[in-house]
Design a protein around this nucleic acid. Structure first.
Length: 463
DNA sequence: CGAGTTTGACCCGCGC
DNA sequence: GCGCGGGTCAAACTCG
């Protein structure tokens, strides 16, 4: 019930802005299946803690009644959206503020780095989300600000593991580990742990949403039972094909009537509970053939709200993730489909480049991406430049990542979507010679794609 | 000079 | 109990 309300309000938010079309649709069946979603923390993979988990599950289900609850003790506050829908929808800053996800801590935290307090967060510490993605930079730009506090050589990997803390708030306990994959140095393995206890920029919430959603899946006893995680195995979700109804991951944009399948298939992800930290791994770097769509799976489905033959993002229905991602002040600067590409700036007006990647100076000048340019007039120079701008954007990688993660959730409903007019944004398989390529591939009516790499960027247009 | 990074030392949990 | 490895601390260093 509340989900439907949220859905309606989210859509209203989108319709209030010409460039923002939201479509958060909860399937009518999801009310039933939401019972299967447990957001309990500190899930144990073994049966001996099952009793505790059950207690936690009951507690968490009670929490669910109060609002959408994400894993890792994250609370999604629908009231913020409600407020948004009832107030001004034109004020960009206000929208940004209101669309920020407030993640209140389970308790007010002082700096949790000291050991005495760290012990109080053992449970929170247990759930981790590991993201494997091809990335040429030192770290993925996920929208958050991080401070490196350590580096260590890990056994069996020639590449050092770096430790970062979130510095958005001095009391934020969130940490991440970054390490290159030993087998493939182009793959960056980022492991997130903990819960932000402060408002996040929208661009950061994309990752936070998805990782926490994945964590919530990990923490679902029902799911773990289905997957046989009680045996402390790593379970490839691609082979399990277990329907995963994730409240948090169910942000896949769709029309209500299309959203009949609440099933999510994580084709290249896995859950591991073999160590002290139950970890869900979202593998965005491994190409795999999906039984559902027959090609590399990370693809993002869009349903054009209006008949669209262009790559018109503003007229497509995005999930909240996608919308916030693409229309946030951060992305908006780069992803301003009809506007000037300028570097991101943080709240203080200073340049945001948390990943330390150098901005491409020329890209900060007068490169434009317009709907018209993208969809109608292939202009190689400007397009290439624009593509570079997009891919050089400090937040873009997180956009890609979030979109890809969202895409996982979207795969389950794709089959339905494709009976209709579906625009699809897909992320190319790394089998391509160039890495980090991104393909926006609207199906049927139109097709266009961005491609980029560390060495060269290309934009392919195919009307 | 302040903020962020580097890096060796230290702590702690776990397996043997 | 011991050793190993992961994780963290904090002084030194770098950079803007």
């Amino acid at each position: 019930m509340q989900d439907h309300k949220l859905e309606r309000e989210m859509r209203e938010v989108g319709e209030g802005n010409d460039n923002l079309k939201l479509s958060l649709v909860r399937d009518s069946t999801s009310d039933e299946e939401s019972e299967l979603v447990s957001l309990s923390l500190g899930i144990s993979s073994t049966g001996k803690h099952e009793k505790n988990n059950r207690t936690e599950k009951i507690r968490e289900n009670e929490d669910l009644k109060e609002g959408l609850s994400l894993g890792l003790d994250i609370r999604f506050d629908p009231s913020a959206i409600k407020n948004h829908s009832t107030e001004s929808r034109c004020d960009g800053e206000r929208k940004e503020e209101e669309l920020r996800v407030i993640w209140p801590p389970s308790k007010v935290l002082k700096r949790t780095w000291d050991k005495s307090e760290a012990s109080q967060h053992v449970e929170v510490k247990k759930a981790r989300v590991c993201i494997r993605a091809r990335c040429d930079t030192l770290t993925m730009n996920d929208g958050c600000q991080w401070r490196k506090y350590g580096q260590k050589m890990a056994k069996g990997n020639p590449c050092p593991r770096a430790y970062y803390r979130c510095t958005v708030s001095p009391s934020c306990p969130v940490k991440k580990q970054v390490q290159r994959c030993a087998e493939d140095m182009s793959i960056l393995i980022t492991t997130y742990e903990g819960t932000h206890n402060h408002p996040l920029p929208t661009s950061a919430t994309t990752i936070a949403y998805t990782t926490s959603a994945a964590a919530s899946m990990l923490q679902s006893p029902s799911l773990t039972t289905q997957l046989g995680l009680a045996n402390s195995d790593t379970v490839p979700l691609i082979s399990s094909s277990v329907p995963c109804n994730l409240n948090a991951l169910n942000f896949t944009s769709s029309y209500h009537h299309l959203s009949k399948s609440p099933h999510l298939y994580f084709h290249t992800s896995s859950i591991s509970t073999s160590n002290s930290h139950p970890t869900v791994t979202l593998d965005l770097a491994t190409p795999q053939t999906s039984p559902h769509i027959g090609k590399f799976t990370p693809s993002l489905s869009f349903i054009p709200k209006y008949s669209s033959t262009n790559v018109d993002f503003s007229s497509s229905t995005f999930s909240p993730l996608q919308s916030s991602m693409l229309h946030s002040p951060c992305y908006g600067d780069y992803f301003n489909y009809g506007g000037l590409i300028t570097p991101n700036r943080n709240h203080n007006g200073s340049l945001m480049n948390t990943g330390k990647q150098p901005f491409l100076g020329h890209l900060c000048q007068s490169n434009h991406i317009s709907n018209h340019t993208i969809s109608k007039q292939p202009l190689p120079d400007s397009i290439v430049a624009a593509t570079k701008a997009i891919t050089a954007a400090p937040k873009f990688q997180s956009a890609i990542l979030a979109a890809a993660l969202t895409a996982y959730a979207g795969n389950g409903v794709r089959e339905n979507h494709e009976r209709h007019r579906v625009q699809r944004m897909s992320f190319s398989a790394p089998s391509a010679p160039k890495r980090d390529s991104v393909i926006f591939q609207p199906s049927h009516a139109s097709k266009s794609s961005f491609g980029s790499s560390s060495s060269k960027s290309n934009l392919f247009l195919d009307q």
